[in-house]
Nucleic acid binder design. Structure first.
Lengths: 195, 195
DNA sequence: ACAATAACTGAACAGTTGTTCAGAAAAAAG
DNA sequence: CTTTTTTCTGAACAACTGTTCAGTTATTGT
């Protein structure tokens, strides 16, 4: 056998990335073999190498793509208004964005140690960019006197860590709606940084 | 060759656990082989099986041991005083305990997916016990009117997630002392839950 | 109808995986 | 000193790893 019926590059490519994303999130990068990914897609392992030069690139591209999506989505959120309003917007954005792609978020935070040194540097840089955007809001609030924060860098990381935690417990069928979750977290974030 | 000079069970056992802890934290459970652990200890791979029935048990015992240590240490902290004082004590305890064992913490949070189903259940239960202790403090504060929290379960997870974040950036040679870190985080935790 | 190209198979490569076990040597017990 | 026990080696097992590639087939272009 060789080329199969209905085989198309623009279909197989995304399917490989989807399968890899899900499997990496579920079992971890190192625990997932190329043959498992291929099986999920319904293809032989060798076929994967038409779409990625190697396994490491597959992971890196998933992570880099996620970080790029995150930054682009956040850049698209209008930044008008006071520091308080901007932080409110960030809280809602961050929670919703992360809850929509739990697998990508999981990988982006858990598989950093499986990146080569250069790939790690790239991802870390993208993450810092995102964090700096948040820190900018906090700094603005401090200057305007509406926020009281002894260290904006730590506060940034603390806020993000707190919001990321939602991914560990939120289930869409659960007790709380997305709006309620957002309101609860915003209450805590707002109080934590306010004067 | 066979038994080597100076070989002792009560030395090799702990050394295996230490090596496994460090390597699992650094590269991930699935990415570390029994031969790598053995090499670190200075022994052949087969020798490890005098100390653990298999690789899975090695991971599980590290995680279960960590959770037991955590609970025992927290139980040893006196619980007298107001809800605010108890939460203050928890904040300091949690930060310090976690910063003292970054590897164990990392594993306990990151390697859950590499546990068998039954082992996972056990660890999850231990984690819930710990969280329930924290929630008890928040509930007490709500009853006494000093805390305003719409959902104590979420607030518990949010506080813990925020505190856990310290492990991702704190370095003992860094800008801030432990006392300063504790004060900054306590400021945010306290404000986030207070009335 | 035919040629060119894109997509995939299936086998093969050398190396690694967790785990078992007979045997050997050091330490402890007598 | 001799026997027993503890601790470890070294080889072996079958299964699996990421990756390459010649060959085969479906699709596209002419």
């Amino acid at each position: 056998m060789a080329r199969t019926q209905g085989s198309h590059s623009d279909i197989t490519g995304p399917r490989i990335r989807e399968a890899a994303l899900r499997l990496f999130a579920q079992h971890g990068y190192a625990a997932v073999s190329m043959r498992q990914i291929a099986k999920e897609v319904g293809v032989q392992a060798g076929a994967l190498y038409n779409y990625t030069p190697d396994k490491q690139s597959l992971l890196f591209n998933l992570m880099a793509g996620h970080m790029a999506d995150l930054q682009a989505a956040w850049d698209a959120v209008p930044q008008a208004g006071s520091a308080l309003e901007r932080l409110r917007a960030f809280t809602g954005f961050h929670i919703r964005f992360h809850l929509e792609r739990p697998d990508a978020v999981f990988i982006a935070y858990m598989e950093l140690r499986n990146l080569t040194e250069e790939n790690f540097t790239v991802i870390e840089s993208l993450r810092r960019d995102y964090e700096n955007g948040v820190e900018g809001i906090l700094k603005q609030g401090v200057e305007q006197g509406v926020f009281t924060i002894p260290d904006t860098k730590i506060a940034t990381l603390a806020v993000i860590a707190m919001l990321n935690g939602v991914n560990t417990w939120y289930r869409s069928e659960g007790r709380l709606s997305l709006d309620e979750v957002e309101r609860v977290y915003w209450g805590m974030v707002q109080k934590a940084v306010s004067t």
